[in-house]
Each structure stands twice: as C-alpha cells, then as structure tokens.
Design a protein around this nucleic acid. Structure first.
Length: 813
RNA sequence: GCCCGGGUGGCGAAAUGGUCAGACGCGGGGGACUUAAAAUCCCCUGACCGCGAGGUCAUGUGGGUUCGAUUCCCACCCCGGGUACCA
C-alpha cells in the first residue's frame, strides 16, 4: 500500500473493435440517434443522398460521402440543435433490375438482402442515423405515396401523355435506356438500335422553367451545382419568326439571332415536324420518304452524336420576310423537334452548323454581320458567330450599320408590325418523361377504360401493388412485362365498372427519389405521405450533402415536385433544400476506382483492421471534402496513431496541479479553428489542427492535465464518435458526448501581449522583431534597426516603408 | 466544342495579396529506450552551391500589375468532371 509505482500505471490498449461495438450497442439501446421530432428544440434536418443498395455492398465512396454529412450533423448536435439524420434505400429502378437479370434472381428477393447488408455496414461505420424512420422506395408503404404523388400531378394538369421516341432493340425486342445504347448498338446483343414512338407519361417541368431559375438566387448551394442547373434550364432570349410557304402552312422558327434574318437562305425542319407531310412536293416525295425512313432507323443517342450533316430538299419554297426573296425548305436531322419550334432558318454566315450544311448542299452564304472595323463584303470561310456587342449589321437594308444588340430588337419590332415575329424566351429544359417500359418500379396508377378514357386509380385504392411475377425480364412483346399478366392488368373501370386495362408502364426511378426527403419525418405514418405539421417543423432540409453527379436531374426533379406540391396546397415552402453542398470524388492512387481495374477499396476490411473511427477520420483527412481525395493505403496509420495518442492522453492525464497556460492557448486556438472549419466542411484542416494540438499536448512526454485533454474529446467526437464516447466516459462525462455541447474558447487567450513582425528589405524577409501588440510603424522600424541581421541591409534613407499592422514591415531602399 | 474544377516537396496535401512557401500526415534518415525487435519518444527531411556563416533557385509555361504574387490580370499547356448539333 505504500509503494509508489516506479513504472507508469498500465492502461488498456486502444481496441477500436471492442469500443465501437459497445457504443453502437448503447446508441441503439438508448435511442441516441432517434431525436424527438415533435418536441426537440431547434430542428436541424441533416440529409445525405440515400444509396441504391447494390449487390456489391457499401462503396468507400458512399462512406466518404456519408461520413462527411454525419460529421456535419454531429457537430450541429453538439451546438445544441436537434439533429435528424435519416437514411433509406433507393431500391427501385433499372440498376437493381439489370443486376437481378444478370445474377438470375428476382429483384424482390435481392433487395431485402442488399438492404440488410447496407444496414449492417452503415451501422458499423458509426453514422448517427435514425433507423426508426428508414424509407425503402420499393416497399408498398412507400410507393403507395409515389403513386399518390403521380395522381396529384395528374389532377393539377402537370402529368400528361404524348408520343415520344424510345430506343428499340429489334433483336431483343425491347426498349433500352440511353445508357444501354453503346455507339448506336444494344449493349447486350450488339444489334443496331432504332427508335420507336410510344405513348408515354410526362411531367410538365417546363412549366416551371423560369421559377426554377429565379428561385436559385436565394438558395445556399455550391456554386458549381447552381451553374449546372442554370445551364440545364438553358434560358435563351430570342424570337419566333414566321415564314410564308407557297401552298402550305406558315413555318415558324425560333432564333436567338433575329438580326441575321437578311442572311437566312433556307429553312430547315426536323424530320418529325408535323408540317413535313404537307410541304413535300410530289417530285420530292420519294427522296424525302427515304430520308425519313433513314432517320427513323437510328437510335436516339447516335442521332445526336453523329454530327455529319444530312438533309433533303422538300421541294417547297418559303419567303424570307425581310428580303422578300424565295428560299428553299429542307428537312435535316440536325434540327431537333424537342427544342424551339422544331424548325430553324439557315443562316450559314453566322452559325457553324448552318455553314456546314450550306457547304455540303451548296446553298448561298451571305455575310450580314461584321466586326466593327470589318469589310461588309469579305468572303466567309467559316461562320462568323462572334458574340461581340460591337459587331455591326451589313447587307441588311435599313439595318446595315446598326450594332448587333440594337438590331436584334429593331428587326423583331419591324417584323412584328408585319405579323412575322414575336419576341420569346425559350428554355432547353424539356418535360420529364417518367414512363418506363420496365418491371421494377411503381406501376403508374391509371386505368384505361374504353368509354371513360384514362381514369386515375382512386386514392383509397392505392397502392397499385407491383405483382410478384417470375418473368420480369423485358421481352419481345415490346411493352412492359406487366402487360403479359392479364390477371393483373385487366380491372374494372373505377368510374363505370366495365372491364378496362391498367397502365403497364412503371414510373422513373428519379420520381422515387424526388420526394423521399418529405417522407422521412413521417415514415412511420400510413395514413398520409407526410404529416403537414411535422413537415412544417422539419423542412425544408437544413443541409443536404450529396454527389454533384446529381446536380441536375435529381436535384431539379426534387425542386419541381416540391413546387408542384406547394402550388397544390400540400406544402408551405417551394424549395426543398435550403443548403446544398456537393462533396468530391474519392480516387485511389491517382486513378478512378473500378471493379475492372481491381483497385476498389473494401470498407469492411478497413474497418476490421483499423476501426471505423480511424477510417472515418482518415477519409476526411485525405483532402478537401468538397474536392474529394486520393485514397492511399499507407496513410491511415497516421490517423490511427493520432487516435492512439488521444487514448493515451486520456488515460495518463492528472487532476493535480494546473494546466499549462501555453498549452491552454493552443487548445483555445484549436477550439476556434475546428469550430470554424467543420461548418465550412474544412474537415482535413480541422483534423490537422487537432493533430497539432496533440503534438503540443504530448510534447517531450510532459504530464497532461485533464482540463487540457477533455475539450479535445468534444472536438474530435464528430470525426471519431466511438472513441470520443469512451474517452468522455472515462473522463467522467455523465451523458453522451454528443449531448455535452461544444467547448467555448476564450478570445482573450488568443491574443498575446507581444507580436512578431516580419521585416523585409526590398521585399525579402530578413528577420523578425518582437514588439508590443500596440506598436506603431515607427516602433517597429526602430526595433528592426536594432537587429544587426536586418540593419546590415538598410543602408541610408529608405525610399519608402510599408507597414502592415501586426504582420509585416517592408523597407524599400 | 462549351461549362466547371485543378496543376505546389518522394507522396496525400496546407496557406488564396504580406512573417525565410510547404502546416498536418505518409514515406525516408538519424538518435533514445530495449539483450533484440515491435511499440513509443526526440531530432532532421524542397533542390542546388558551400566546411561554415550564408547564398541561389523553386508553387504547370510565358508575360503583366505591385514595395511585395502560390494568391490578382492576360495568353498558353496539361489533368479531372459535367455537357453536347439547344438554333
């Protein structure tokens, strides 16, 4: 009882597996990660993009993304907010279906297995997920409401049916998604893909183009993401111009360059343009038919990829409303029916594509625009398509000499008077085709009745359950596999009762994910898709973190759905995500990870070997979260050592004596730094700052005071939650470290009485001087001259002295 | 082609007008402890010249602005991502 131990007391080695198991169990048992949604103060909805539960299990990239979001959420919780961090599975869709076909199993069997595996992995990774609100999109309790959503859009006139082209494989006799068409060939059988017109369901996203654009200015989103959306919406200002055509209907074109109309030497229609049949003259009929046939037997993808100009003359002749001259009307597949009016005027002098076309078909090329100092008659060897505001019109009658921006307005006004023009704003954003001629998705809840037409399935009859059929593969019938099941698709009309047919298409996977964030808080409710009051309390999502590969489609569709629900009176807000941050991509040793390269990192093995805390922290240490990182196998040891040192410090620290003031200063600087870096997603520098502190804390095997190490545990907790809980417990914490708050720093400790000023002579640093914190320029200069190493460079009177208060003095000789 | 990112030590990366650029970590070298090794701890580590003090060069390339540039401007090269006949 009297012996003073001569060796330091032993303490258990840091054993991540054991610690992590204990705390994960405790979190689950005590519901630590399931906040009280109705009463919790200061709600903070921390959302991460839910995964598609692939057969391969959780990818390290998923883990990188989720960990970054989780750290943000855990930090917010330590700021005293009630943080809701839900998770779910995007389990419907073509990816799962294709995988099921590949491995020869049914997606309905595969999905629960994959989901179970993901659950295990996500739990093992120590994410602060509220599993009590899990959402699985392929579960009838979820897709019931996806179908409900379709019905609301239908009621609001936002869903409609029209014919649209799909990729069709004539060999497999099935519809293909764009990504299944490789170079114009079917990815499975290599047959040449063609296009087919099918009646499909669309959502009127285009109705919201301007609002989707306008609202964006108020969103706190990564700028790259906003820019991607702006480009996608593609607003462009221009005009509709109308051309008379002899013996036929007028042709209206869209152009952003009405000023160039004097140079329009032909008209071109898309092959699908409705006026084509009317315009063709008997003499040209055979040639035109042949061309139309050719464009039809081309898949949707390669038509856009193949830039070689083709076309055919219709025989029709239009009148250029500006010049009054006759111009030929052509058909060419470089004109897209889905953009503008499906017809353009050919202005070869000032449009690259038109120039190519003119060269190929020997059409006249007229210059109507020239640089300010240019020659009106200089021949064009390529299209002059500059956007310079100083460009002037030439060869354009009364408009010659006018600058382009002014001419755009003047020409439209002039033609407008004659009824030949209307100013319009056009968007490239198309309506959203949600029909999929597939099996693994929510059936679209519509019934076709011979006497009533399309009838929505009454809401009290939802869900329209996806039947469990064995032959779920797409086959040679050319329509959805569901159409092969009479017993499923033959139903009485809800209105008149006569035998009718169900819609056999399922909806797009993107529809499942366009509203899942609304479902989470209400996931346990079977009577409503989302509870109005609870939604009001938790949404819009406070912070959404996800990959920028979804910058356009998923985020745009989610915004669209939110707007529609708002306008339908279901929501009080019309933007779903207040703050969005795109994380970067994780690569390995400079290369993209892929199965074919065999360089995929397996998170399970890493967690087993190093622990979840080390892996989490290491992933965040690789680089800027928003830029991604380069995963290298050797680096994780440094992070593990860092956690080991924290573990050691917690066990070795004493409560006698006082903390070292110098260490405390560093501690408070670290608290400040980490507290500023985490909300800005500067995780790598936050970790570096903590490492620096640990180096100071343990320098020269000094004795560590408990008060020097305790706040560090709170700082490291978002990154390494398990070891933090364990350490907090050891240091006498009575609650979870995540309910212990965040340490405050004392600003007074961060300023010292003396400051070090760099002294440069002619811009070269020659030394530093230590002066009082209120020193003036003169004080610093005087002090500098006392330093021989500085003074020797100062010879005579300086020409100039620049003083940056508190930082630097530059003496210019 | 167009729109975004990004080029800094042997490597992952810090610092975006101001203290010899390179924090933090990996890797490497040296030392302490140990019978030895591991672990741990301490020191060094951009390149070149010099015994040394010290000096020279260095943030993709070339210009420019400035007392001062990795940081701002212009041109170009390379890498990554997105998008693509959008009139």
């Amino acid at each position: 009882m009297s012996d003073t131990p001569s060796v330091p007391p032993e303490f258990p080695a840091y054993d991540p597996a054991a610690i992590e198991a204990i705390w994960q169990h405790r979190w689950a048992e005590q519901g630590t990660n399931s906040p009280e949604l109705w009463t919790g103060a200061d709600p903070y909805y921390q959302l991460m993009m839910f995964p598609y539960p692939s057969g391969e299990g959780l990818h390290i990239g998923n883990l990188f993304a989720f960990t970054g979001a989780d750290i943000h959420g855990r930090f917010q919780r330590q700021q005293g907010r009630t943080v809701f961090e839900p998770i779910g599975f995007d389990s419907f869709g073509i990816q799962t279906e294709n995988y099921a076909i590949k491995v020869g199993q049914h997606p309905a069997q595969l999905t629960p297995r994959n989901v179970a595996r993901f659950r295990g992995q996500l739990t093992r990774a120590g994410l602060m997920l509220d599993w009590s609100k899990e959402v699985i999109t392929s579960d009838p309790s979820y897709y019931k409401w996806t179908q409900w959503l379709f019905l609301q859009l239908y009621k609001q006139g936002m869903a409609y049916k029209k014919a649209a082209a799909v990729n069709w494989c004539p060999n497999d006799k099935t519809v293909l998604a764009n990504e299944q068409v490789i170079d114009g060939h079917c990815e499975r059988c290599d047959a040449l893909v063609e296009q087919r017109l099918l009646e499909q369901w669309f959502f009127r996203t285009s109705h919201y183009s301007q609002r989707l654009l306008d609202n964006m200015t108020a969103l706190d989103w990564s700028e790259i993401t906003r820019q991607a959306q702006r480009n996608w919406i593609g607003r462009s200002e221009g005009a509709h111009l109308t051309f008379r055509v002899a013996n036929a209907h007028d042709v209206t074109v869209f152009t952003t360059r009405p000023d160039t109309i004097f140079g329009a030497t032909w008209l071109v229609l898309a092959p699908e343009h409705p006026l084509v049949a009317q315009l063709v003259t008997p003499a040209q009929l055979a040639e035109v038919d042949a061309y139309l046939e050719r464009t039809k037997t081309q898949d949707v993808v390669s038509r856009k990829v193949n830039k070689e100009k083709t076309g055919v003359f219709t025989g029709a002749v239009g009148i250029n409303p500006a010049t009054g001259k006759p111009i030929p009307v052509w058909i060419a597949d470089y004109v897209l029916m889905e953009y503008g009016t499906g017809a353009v005027m050919g202005v070869p002098g000032h449009d690259e594509r038109d120039f190519e076309f003119a060269e190929k078909f020997a059409l006249p090329i007229i210059r109507v625009v020239t640089p300010a100092d240019g020659d009106a008659d200089a021949p064009l060897t390529e299209a002059y398509a500059s956007k310079l505001e100083s460009d002037l019109l030439v060869n354009s009658a009364q408009f010659s000499g006018m600058p382009v921006p002014q001419a755009k307005k003047a020409v439209v006004a002039w033609l407008e008077e004659r009824g030949n023009a209307t100013p319009v704003i056009n968007y490239r954003l198309n309506d959203w085709c949600i029909s999929r001629q597939r099996y693994w998705g929510p059936p679209i809840p519509i019934i076709y009745c011979d006497s009533c037409g399309p009838v929505p399935v009454p809401e009290d009859q939802l869900p329209v359950v996806l039947p469990l059929i064995e032959d779920f593969r797409p086959d040679d019938s050319g329509i959805s596999p569901l159409a092969r099941h009479d017993e499923w698709y033959r139903v009485p009309c809800p209105t008149c009762g006569i035998m009718s047919r169900r819609e056999t298409d399922v909806s797009d996977n993107f529809l499942d994910s366009a509203w899942y964030f609304l479902r989470y808080p209400s996931a346990d409710r079977s009577d409503v898709p989302f509870d109005r009051a609870l939604t009001q309390r938790w949404l819009p999502v406070t912070t959404y973190i996800g990959g920028n590969e979804h910058a356009v489609l998923h985020l745009l569709y989610s915004r669209f759905i939110t707007m529609v629900l708002h306008d339908g009176g279901f929501l009080d807000f019309d933007e779903p995500f207040t703050r969005f941050r795109a994380h970067g991509m994780i690569i390995r040793e400079g290369a993209k990870m892929s199965k074919s390269k065999g360089n995929v990192v397996n998170p399970d093995e890493l967690i087993e070997r190093w622990g979840a805390d080390s892996l989490r922290t290491y992933l965040m240490f690789l680089g800027k979260y928003e830029e991604g990182g380069d995963y290298r196998d050797s680096g994780i040891t440094g992070v593990r050592r860092f956690l080991d040192r924290i573990w050691g410090s917690v066990h070795e620290c004493v409560t006698t004596g006082e903390p070292d003031p110098a260490v405390l200063r560093k501690l408070h600087a670290t608290i400040k730094k980490v507290g500023e870096d985490i909300p800005a997603l500067g995780y790598n520098t936050a970790i570096a700052a903590m490492m620096e502190y640990v180096n100071v804390l343990r320098a020269s095997e000094r004795t560590i005071h408990r008060d020097e190490v305790r706040p560090l545990i709170q700082l490291v907790a978002p990154f390494a939650p398990h070891i933090a809980e364990a350490c907090w417990d050891i240091l006498g914490g009575h609650e979870s470290v995540f309910d212990s708050g965040w340490p405050a720093y004392d600003p007074a400790l961060l300023v010292s009485d003396t400051i070090t000023i760099a002294v440069q002579v002619n811009g070269k640093t020659r030394g530093t001087v230590s002066v009082g914190k209120d020193a003036t320029q003169a004080d610093v200069y005087a002090a500098a001259l006392q330093e021989p190493n500085i003074a020797k460079f100062v010879d005579g009177e300086p020409k100039k002295i620049i003083y940056v208060a508190g930082r630097l003095l530059n003496v210019v000789m």
